[in-house]
């Protein structure tokens, strides 16, 4: 069951590469959050209710509902439809995505071989998520997409920490979640300001400062 979910999560990344509608991207992020929640629930290793409650709060409430909803309202308010022409065209992006997946598989096989107590499939997909979001950040121009890619990067990191199965202390978990939430909130504030102050909302307009 978990393997199926993980593979589903992996394919969702391919979908991100293929679509250019921003709303679809946000919905996909919500879906990723939900899959992470299911993984947390299925994969309970210990009966520590506080931890489980916290992780569910983080994945189900924050990653799957609150943040996507928040981003969706911003997108609808600003009437943002599609991604503008990216630096590398759609077709080549998908090819690059395949290459990233290939690398992820190698990482998964390798981690299974050295057996450092890592779950191979989780590890591979999390690496793919992290590299793919970094690639998307470089390739896409819209500032809102950058915020979404940051969310995806955070999902990847969440999955990575899950694959390693070393638990962080509660205080750290709370701090991480708080940082994520405030971060997204700040990004959106700045995004709105850029939208109103600059002529457009892609990174190409940010050219005030240079040497």
């Amino acid at each position: 069951m978990t393997d199926f979910l993980i593979i589903f999560l992996g394919t969702s990344i391919l979908y991100v590469f293929a679509v250019s509608r921003i709303e679809a991207f946000v919905k996909l992020l919500a879906l990723q959050g939900f899959i992470l929640f299911l993984l947390v629930i299925i994969d309970i290793r210990e009966i520590n209710w506080i931890n489980i409650a916290f992780l569910s709060l983080e994945t189900l409430v924050m990653k799957a509902v609150v943040i996507p909803y928040f981003l969706l309202t911003v997108i609808r308010k600003n009437e943002i439809g599609r991604e503008v022409e990216p630096y590398i065209t759609q077709f080549y992006s998908v090819l690059i995505a395949c290459a990233i997946f290939f690398f992820g598989f190698i990482a998964a096989f390798w981690s299974a071989k050295i057996g450092a107590g890592i779950k191979p499939l989780y590890f591979g997909v999390s690496i793919v998520l992290i590299i793919a979001s970094l690639f998307l950040i470089i390739n896409r121009k819209r500032i809102i997409t950058h915020i979404l890619c940051y969310m995806m990067l955070e999902n990847g990191i969440f999955l990575l920490s899950f694959s390693v199965a070393n638990e962080m202390p509660m205080l750290v978990n709370i701090g991480v979640l708080l940082d994520l939430f405030v971060g997204i909130y700040l990004f959106v504030i700045f995004f709105n300001k850029i939208q109103s102050m600059f002529d457009g909302s892609h990174i190409d307009v940010l050219t005030e400062l240079k040497d």
């Binding site: 950040i137 940051y150 990067l153 971060g183 700040l186 990004f187 700045f190 850029i194 940010l206 400062l209």
Partner: peptide, 18 residues
Amino acid sequence: SSLEAAWKYVYICSIGIA
């Protein structure tokens, strides 16, 4: 200009820190 600086700062640093 300060908006641009703040955006670059918060975004680049957040990715780095991630």
